[in-house]
Design a protein around this nucleic acid. Structure first.
Length: 541
RNA sequence: GGCCCUAUCGUCUAACGGUUAGGACGGAGCGUUCUCAAUGCUCAAAUCAGAGUUCGAUUCUCUGUAGGGUCACCA
């Protein structure tokens, strides 16, 4: 190696003013935390929307940090400027806020946006270059593509390695000549491994994994002067003093590269845990939740639909540690933050299938535990953004809607039929007096004829008294049963089916259908009470 | 194709090498109830296949099979 020429190259390709490694170490000192504290991070790319998997990962990282009095931080990985989308960063910030995933913003370890840390990466690239662990590569994309095709034809491993790494051992004067010609270049890492040999990676989730040593001369600095993920994340995780990296298991196979880089940079190695992503069934095969194909991959989906945030969180927690469900059963009122998440119990099998039924069940459970005030509050917030008509309706008569949401709430048998806020209006639509259309009896199935139904309604209208309590109300209904040949109670009917046309249910069905236009509804007495005598009379006519 | 990961009811998963293989969601049925929801009870439903180790294997080993991941100047 000709050190004079090397120096010349360095002068040519690296800016003069760069922070030195010593300065960086000093600027980002080890964190003053107990040994057991976990420093974790979530590193999304601002490419469009917040993925459910991102929330899942953040939730786990934050919990582990919180449980150990550590630190959870957010780093925006925007080194691919081509894929970056306007406003995407803001979506990340607001999604994390929605899910109450507060992250550390201590400026001491910032900035937390990679494009603002360019000089730092270049310093390390320069360091690698100076020690002979990096080199310039002047290959064009066409050349690389041609090489890959050739490798495929010969059934060889694809990539830039060994004898295929044609710029790996070029002499300085050749490199300098290309630089003089201003040929575009990238910087590659000079790998140290032999892919025939293996080493053991101790994974937090998967245990000991035997992997081949790295022999790939990966790109560390791209043509646009920004680092690749591999280099950037290794540098940042070190300087930000990260202790535990939890990430999708699609990264497991790049561990050899990262390990090689860490060694070469002289960093302490940190712990990695590779988690299987959430899957979805696509025909007969399962696949990762896809941005393009699956609306539920986007966390905004859950907001749109009106899923309670805590339900989504608990669903994810349940996927992470299946004992969460038992804990929740024993501690129905506790906040999920009190649950102790453990790495040992983290599901290490294949990615779970997204199960909306299960999510809905959790959501129903959550809503059932709310007071009517809370329900009102949540519905209002949802409707404000997604259903203006309903929003105005709620505001115009909030007392009325409070009563509606209080139907069969707080007693022994709490209703559990609302899972998402977008279903609320349809469920209680018949309370919308303005829009209520007179019941069409055409499809009504009953033991009674049309004339009999008319009679029932007339008689019922006459004896309905708004001030009756539930007992009085029920006994009046039962009285009417006798008159129309129905059994006042079901037991009597079952004892002697021949003696009656049916039981009390037949009669309440007529009333229900007249008042709500439906054959199914919550407690009919409460509905009558809330609608008020005037409206009831109108609907019974 | 190379390398890596994974394999228990339909789904999410439990089970120091010894259990009638447990729970939850979903499904079915019954009871209760004015309908629905809820609730209570009951039922159906699984260890991928084959070898090996062992007194004994869901659990350990190997082989096969199947699924998933990864092989970018994207993360």
């Amino acid at each position: 190696m000709n050190s004079e020429l090397t120096k010349k190259i360095i002068e040519k390709i690296f800016p003069e003013k760069l922070p030195t490694l010593e300065e960086l170490e000093e600027k980002y000192p080890p964190r003053n935390l107990p040994d057991s504290a976990m420093v974790t991070r979530i590193c999304p790319s601002p490419t469009g929307f917040m993925h459910l998997g991102g929330i899942y990962m953040s939730l786990l990282c934050k919990k582990f940090a919180d449980q150990t009095d550590g630190v959870f931080y957010l780093r925006i990985e925007d080194t691919d400027k081509k894929r970056e989308l306007q406003g995407a960063k803001e979506i990340i910030y607001s999604s994390l806020k929605d899910y109450d995933l507060l992250y550390d913003k201590n400026p001491k370890y910032g900035p937390y946006v990679q494009s603002e840390r360019k000089d730092i990466y270049i310093s390390y690239v320069k360091y690698l270059f100076s020690k002979g662990d990096a080199y310039l590569c002047f290959c064009t994309e066409e050349e690389l593509k041609a090489a890959t095709e050739k490798q495929e034809k010969l059934h060889l491993k694809r990539g830039y390695y060994g004898e295929w790494a044609i710029w790996r051992n070029k002499t300085e004067d050749v490199v300098l000549a290309e630089l003089d010609k201003e040929t575009p270049y990238i910087i590659r890492f000079k790998s140290h491994g032999d892919c025939e040999k293996t080493f053991i990676h101790h994974d937090l989730l998967k245990g000991n994994v035997s992997l081949p040593e790295n022999d790939m001369d990966i790109v560390i600095l791209k043509r646009d002067g920004l680092p690749t993920y591999h280099l950037a994340h290794v540098v940042d995780d070190h300087l930000m003093r990260t202790t535990d990296v939890l990430r999708g298991d699609e990264w497991l196979s790049s561990i050899p590269v990262h390990y090689d880089l860490v060694q070469s940079l002289g960093f302490d190695s940190i712990r990695y845990g590779h988690i299987s992503p959430i899957n979805k069934m696509d025909g007969s095969s399962r696949r990762k939740l896809s941005k393009r194909k699956d609306p539920e991959a986007n966390v905004a989906f859950f907001k749109d639909k009106g899923f309670v945030v805590s339900a989504v969180i608990e669903y994810l927690l349940n996927l992470a540690n299946s004992n969460f469900e038992d804990w929740r059963k024993e501690n129905p009122k506790k906040d999920y933050t009190e649950f102790n998440l453990t790495i040992e119990k983290l599901a290490k099998s294949n990615g779970p299938l997204y199960d909306e039924m299960k999510l809905r069940d959790i959501a129903k459970e959550k809503i059932a535990l709310m007071t009517s005030e809370k329900v009102f509050e949540y519905v209002l917030i949802w409707a404000k953004d997604y259903d203006k008509y309903f929003y105005n309706l709620l505001n115009s008569n909030s007392e009325y809607w409070h009563k509606i949401f209080n139907i069969e709430r707080g007693g022994d048998s709490i209703r559990k039929d609302i899972a998402i806020w977008s279903e609320v209006y349809d469920f209680y639509k018949f309370f919308d007096v303005e829009k209520f259309v007179r019941t069409d009896w055409g499809n009504f199935k009953s033991v009674f004829s049309t004339d009999e139904i008319k009679d029932i309604l007339t008689e019922y209208k006459a004896l309905y008294n708004e001030s009756d309590d539930k007992q009085a109300w029920l006994s009046k209904v039962k009285d009417l049963c006798t008159k129309f040949g129905l059994a006042p109670d079901i037991k009597a009917y079952k004892a002697d089916r021949e003696a009656f046309k049916g039981h009390v249910g037949e009669l309440t069905q007529v009333i229900r259908y007249a008042v709500t236009g439906r054959t199914q509804s919550p407690d009919i007495y409460e509905i009558l009470q809330i609608l008020g005598i005037e409206e009831v009379t109108k609907r019974l006519s």
